[in-house]
Write a protein that binds this DNA or RNA. Structure first.
Length: 665
RNA sequence: UGGCCUAUGGUGUAACUGGCAACACGUUGGUUUUUGGUACCAAAGAGUCUAGGUUCGAGCCCUAGUAGGCCAACCA
């Protein structure tokens, strides 16, 4: 078996290493820990894909744990939505758990820490505490309550729990080090008083643990082997470990936190807070608006779990900041839908075609292949008649020969039907084309360049089609210090169209996905009813024609050549430099001749900066030497810089460079 | 005036103990095609942030710089 070794990402490497160092494969366990304070978005799919993917790969359990320690922001609605989304993506969690399940254990441990002198009750204002905390570049100072007695701390903490104090009066802090370089280690808060109703524990508690105190301990309770999170939690790792140190039983598994770079997608935002604002301000119609980068939005838009999982897999896992181009997401959904979506004919922007030699009243039901990528998809019948709709864009009275569509006097194939020839047009008083008169031919075997989709007017069904554009006009809308992401909202992100669809679509059900031939992929929206079909455009087809069109408008051909020649001689020489010393000898000779030719158009000021080229880049130094040789030949005087460059080259390790330098010295 | 993290084609991710910088998307050509889609073929595009060092040999190791990110919520 010549098995190609699959390259592992850094997390997989860590796990493999742990396995090699004696960790049992059975003790592998992961978790996905969302806070139920909003809907999951495409960014979360990366975290989900990593932890659940690892679970699938190692056949290890993965817990779905809701990190619900802040009742002010969390709701049952979000818990339900998150479960639905993770399940829809096709992942199976081992246990559904809640941090709130551990409130009692966490409380007991906190009492233990107090007794050990590792935690104390602070009774200052948050402002005073922030003051004492210092800054990243300046150490903090101890607060006045730091050395309360254990008895006093115990008493106060118990009374906090009993509800004797209002929010903000007292908090419990870990006693670590106010001078620590890591701000998080400067006596972090463990508990605060919050007199809020919790979606699970109701009013049982009025003190709630903070994230740092909760997270590692929860991982420990669940015996999570690898606790994976995004990079911004890196500084928390030290605290995570400190808290574990206080309670861990050495005979049990101790969880490890490791961090990866979160996913960013171009032209969108990933912050729950900002997504919430779009919902609240009515920019979109809810969390599942098809323009939203939420999982529910993508689902409604017509994305498939397969496509999203493929996307996450392709994106990879590493530790550097990234912005992934939406085109990759689009590629993934096209790739999936191309194989699975039935093809169908729909006209979005109609113009009437009359086939003058086709009998009035006659209807033929044509055989149409449902999906040429999938033989099992079968065939359906499509009605053909004398009067049809085609797309306005598919007809021009006159056009060049790159226009493969219908124009006066020439032919085009109607998909699944006949070949037609445009003979004349009928216009209204404003000069708009209202009808195109054609004749048809039944000989369909001929080779014809263009093929158009169409619908029979008499049989067409009206439907609403929603087309979406990106929500933001900027590639990274929330990365500008001077501008708010709301400044980049695209006001035209939704376009509603009345379309004409082939009659077979009357049976389409909510969620069904289709390829509207030559247009793109569409699915039936939730808003669809029995008498009004509503479609969402998931994504367009790749469109090579769209790219030629603009060029056509401004003189077709002469784009490329001049650009090549516009590059300055010195730039062309430099590009030889990149490869020169790696070229085979015969190519090198040719290249050298060309460089010498180009060098005639170069002046000294352009060459001098290249003298500083690093030693490594010997190719560039060689071509510089060749160019310099031509200049010297043409009467340039040697100066100090030139002499130094040549002298240094004479000592170089690269034989070619030495040779060229000798020629000049 | 600090600590930590990161730096490889346009984008993302690889490159096993140091040994010809690879894959995918995107781009550009071409072939096939009753979708200007798909599929297939090909090309262009990186001297691996900079400067040094170690080495027969550095993307990988060392030093110093530069750039970007994160860290001062009773959020997670």
């Amino acid at each position: 078996m010549s098995e190609e070794r699959k390259s592992l990402n850094f997390i997989e490497q860590i796990i493999e290493e742990d396995l090699v160092n004696g960790m049992s494969k059975n003790s592998l366990r992961f978790r996905f820990p969302p806070e139920p304070n909003g809907y999951l978005h495409i960014g979360h799919t990366k975290a989900i894909g990593i932890s659940f993917g690892l679970g699938e790969y190692y056949d290890a359990p993965v817990n779905l744990r809701f990190d619900d320690t802040n009742p002010a922001k969390e709701e049952q609605e979000y818990v339900d939505a998150i479960k639905k989304d993770v399940a829809w993506l096709g992942y199976k969690w081992d246990k559904e758990l809640f941090s709130s399940d551990y409130f009692q254990q966490l409380y007991d441990w906190a009492v233990y820490l107090i007794k050990e002198g590792k935690a104390y009750v602070d009774s200052q204002s948050s402002e005073a505490m922030a003051e004492q905390k210092g800054t990243p570049t300046q150490a903090g100072v101890d607060g006045p309550y730091r050395n309360r007695t254990i008895e006093e701390n115990l008493d106060l903490f118990e009374r906090m729990k009993a509800g004797e104090f209002d929010e903000g009066e007292h908090i419990l802090r870990a006693k670590i080090d106010m001078q620590h370089v890591n701000m998080l280690m400067r006596d972090p808060i463990m508990y605060r008083v919050l007199k809020k109703h919790h979606h699970r524990t109701a009013n049982d508690w009025c003190i709630y643990p903070m994230y740092d105190w909760t997270h590692g301990e929860s991982d420990y309770i669940e015996q999570i082997s690898h606790s994976l999170c995004s990079l911004e939690f890196k500084p928390h790792r030290e605290l995570y470990d400190w808290f574990l140190d206080q309670v861990v039983d050495p005979s049990k598994l101790r969880p490890k936190q490791r961090e990866f770079a979160r996913l960013n997608l171009s032209y969108t935002i990933m912050s729950k807070r900002k997504l919430l604002k779009l919902v609240e301000d009515g920019i979109v119609n809810g969390w599942d608006d098809p323009r939203m980068p939420t999982i529910s939005g993508l689902r409604r838009r017509g994305y498939t779990p397969n496509a999203i999982r493929k996307f996450v897999e392709t994106v990879g896992v590493a530790k550097r900041e990234n912005i992934i181009d939406v085109s990759l997401l689009e590629f993934c959904i096209r790739e999936d839908l191309n194989k699975t979506a039935p093809r169908v004919m729909v006209v979005l922007n109609p113009v009437k075609v009359v086939i003058t030699n086709y009998p009035e009243g006659k209807v033929e039901w044509m055989n149409a292949e449902n999906n040429q990528e999938d033989e099992s998809a079968g065939y359906r019948k499509v009605p053909f008649s004398r009067e049809l709709f085609i797309e306005k864009e598919d007809f021009k009275e006159e056009a060049g020969n790159k226009f493969f569509r219908l124009k006066l006097g020439s032919e085009v194939r109607l998909k699944n039907a006949y070949i037609i020839k445009a003979e004349s047009v009928v216009k209204d008083t404003d000069g708009n084309i209202t009808e195109i008169h054609c004749t048809y031919s039944e000989d369909t075997e001929r080779r014809i360049k263009g093929t158009l989709h169409w619908v029979s007017i008499a049989h067409a069904v009206k439907a609403e089609v929603r087309e979406y554009d990106r929500l933001f006009s900027d590639e990274a809308p929330d990365s500008h210090q001077d501008k708010d992401f709301m400044d980049f909202i695209n006001p035209n992100s939704l376009k509603t169209i009345q379309a004409y669809v082939e009659p077979s679509l009357e049976e389409a059900k909510t969620g069904d996905r289709f390829q509207f031939q030559r247009l793109g992929y569409f699915n039936v929206d939730d808003d669809s009813t029995s008498n009004q079909l509503v479609f969402n455009k998931t994504v367009g087809l790749r469109d090579a024609w769209a790219k030629v069109k603009p060029k056509n408008n401004q003189n077709s051909n002469q784009q490329k050549q001049p650009q090549q020649n516009n590059r300055s001689a010195i730039d062309q020489i430099k590009s030889y430099g990149k490869k020169y010393d790696r070229m085979p000898e015969d190519k090198q000779v040719k290249a050298k001749a060309e460089i010498q030719e180009l060098a005639k158009k170069v002046n000294y000021d352009e060459v001098e900066p290249l003298f500083n080229t690093s030693v490594k880049k010997s190719g560039t130094r060689i071509i510089t030497m060749i160019t310099l040789g031509v200049l010297l030949n043409n009467g340039l005087e040697k100066n100090e810089a030139i002499n130094e460059f040549i002298t240094k080259a004479l000592d170089d390790k690269n034989a070619l460079l030495v040779e060229e330098a000798k020629a000049l010295s």
